[in-house]
Amino acid sequence: LYDKCSYTSHDRGWVLGIEALSDQGTRDPRYYFTLRTDRARKATTITAHRSYLPNQWVHLAVTYNGRIIKLYINGAQAATSSEQVGPIFSPLTQNCKVLMIGGNALNQNYRGYLEQFSLWKTPRSQEKIVHDMGQAVHGLSNSLPQLVLQNSFENVKRAWTPMKNGKFPQIENIYHHGSSLDTILDLPQCGQTLCDNLEVITNYNKFTSFRRPKVVRYRVVNIYDDNHENPTVTKDQIELQHQKLNEAFSKYNITWELDLLEKNDSFLRHRLILTNCDITKIGDGMCEPECNHALTGFDGGDCRHIIPSVALKKKQNGVCDMDCNIESFHFDGGDCCNPNVTDVTKTCFDPQSPH
Results as ranks from 00 to 15, higher is better:
Lys263His: 10
Val221Arg: 06
Trp256Cys: 10
Gln241His: 10
Ala248His: 10
Ile223Lys: 01
Ile254Val: 06
Gln243Leu: 14
Tyr218Gly: 05
Glu247Asp: 14
Leu240Gly: 03
Lys235His: 11
His242Asn: 06
Tyr252Lys: 05
Leu272Gln: 09
Ile254Asn: 00
Glu239Trp: 14
Trp256Lys: 04
Tyr218Phe: 09
Pro231Thr: 01
Glu239Val: 11
Ser250Trp: 04
Tyr252Pro: 00
Asp225Gly: 09
Asp259Ser: 15
Leu261Thr: 08
His270Gly: 03
Leu258Asn: 01
Ile238Asp: 00
Arg217Cys: 02
Val215Ile: 11
Gln241Arg: 11
Gln243Pro: 01
Arg217Gln: 05
Thr255Pro: 00
Phe267Tyr: 13
Lys235Ile: 05
Val216Asp: 06
Asp236Pro: 00
Lys263Pro: 00
Arg217Leu: 01
Asn264Thr: 03
Asp265Lys: 07
Arg219Ala: 09
Gln241Thr: 07
Arg269Gln: 12
Val221Gly: 04
His242Ile: 01
Val221Met: 05
Asp225His: 07
Glu247Gly: 05
Tyr252Leu: 10
Asp226Pro: 03
Lys263Glu: 11
Pro213Thr: 04
Arg271Gln: 15
Arg271Gly: 15
Ala248Tyr: 11
Phe267Pro: 04
Thr255Ala: 10
Phe267Gln: 12
Asp225Met: 09
Ile223His: 01
Leu240Trp: 09
Tyr218Ser: 07
Glu239Ala: 15
Arg217Val: 02
Val233His: 11
Ile238Val: 02
Arg269Ile: 04
Asn230Asp: 14
Ile254Tyr: 00
Ala248Val: 08
Ile238Met: 01
Ser250Phe: 06
Gln243Asn: 14
His270Glu: 05
Tyr218Trp: 02
Leu272Met: 12
Val233Gln: 12
Ser266Arg: 06
Leu261Phe: 03
Phe249Ala: 15
Phe267Ser: 13
Leu261Asn: 13
Leu260Thr: 06
Asn264Asp: 12
His270Ile: 03
Glu239His: 15
His242Gln: 06
Ile238Lys: 00
Gln243Gly: 05
Glu257Pro: 01
Arg217Asp: 01
Arg269Thr: 08
Asp226Met: 05
Gln237Asn: 04
Leu268Ile: 10
Arg271Lys: 14
Glu239Ser: 14
Phe249Thr: 07
Asn222Ala: 12
Ser266His: 10
Asn230Val: 07
Val221Glu: 08
Lys244Met: 13
His228Asp: 15
Asn253Val: 15
Glu257Ala: 08
Leu260Gly: 09
Asp265Met: 06
Glu262Phe: 03
Leu245Glu: 02
Phe267Arg: 10
Asn253Gln: 15
Thr234Leu: 11
Leu261Tyr: 06
Trp256His: 10
Glu229Asp: 14
Ile254Ser: 00
